[in-house]
Amino acid sequence: MVENRPLLSVISHLILIFGVALIALPIWITFVAATHDEARMLQAPIPMLPGGYFWENFKQTLFGSGLSGTEIAPVWRMLGNSLAMALMISLGKISISLISAFAIVYFKFPFRMGFFWLIFITLMLPVEVRIMPTFQVVANLGMLNSYWGLSIPLIASATATFMFRQVFLTIPDEMLESARIDGASPMRFFWDILIPLSRTNIAALFVILFIYGWNQYLWPLLITTDADMTTIVMSIKQMLEASEQSPQWNIIMMTALLAMIPPIFVVISMQKLFVQGLTETDK
């Protein structure tokens, strides 16, 4: 730093530690609640230090009947649903955006700009503003209560298409010219040159989109009525409702913990890609 003021550094660290503690508090309380038994979680004040029931709660939540009094699928099944939805959304978005960006940048064809603007418009139509009619379309197509219904309507992506377009535009023209002289067909060029050159961008986008997909709430809430199709994120709300009759907070918080861990793990373990993905897609 510019000047050497030890006191200021100490204060800086203290404030940051306080900030981290404040941000972490809700997660800490969740974790603590997941380590106590049901009886302890009914006495105010609730504990602030972990108890000894973590594995028991973990086993009961993941493999047991879950929360009594609710008619939802077992937690492992919901985790599976969430994983399937998150992967289908993220991989689907990446695939269709990659190929459409490829077409828009590397081909000259009638209506090219028309397609470009059509994709651009999706940016202005988040699912929240077209809830009812989109639901009706999915219902008419018979896609309610299916993985397809959960993912396909969400996989059009203007931001991902723009990002790949930007990436392709920075790849020197000579790559294409050289590949054409080498005799590469368009799809060969796409697989051999473009995909390897966009690898880190794809990975960064995957991190962001995986979290986006995993955390979807309103959409699965609308189109799944079958308990077997419930995602883990959705189940929390149902458990909160059930808690009024049977307040098993240890199980509810363990479920919340299980629902948070995959995306948090992705963010922390791929922090560099995550930051790259965020800054690239939003600018």
Partner: peptide, 26 residues
């Protein structure tokens, strides 16, 4: 790009998935 692939049916196939999803669900 300064140079592009010759026009064919391919670019239409490439944008088709995105466009179809956009039209039906957006």
């Amino acid at each position: 790009k300064r140079v592009h692939f010759p026009t064919s049916v391919l670019p239409y196939l490439l944008v088709a998935p995105q466009i179809i999803v956009t039209l039906i669900f957006f």
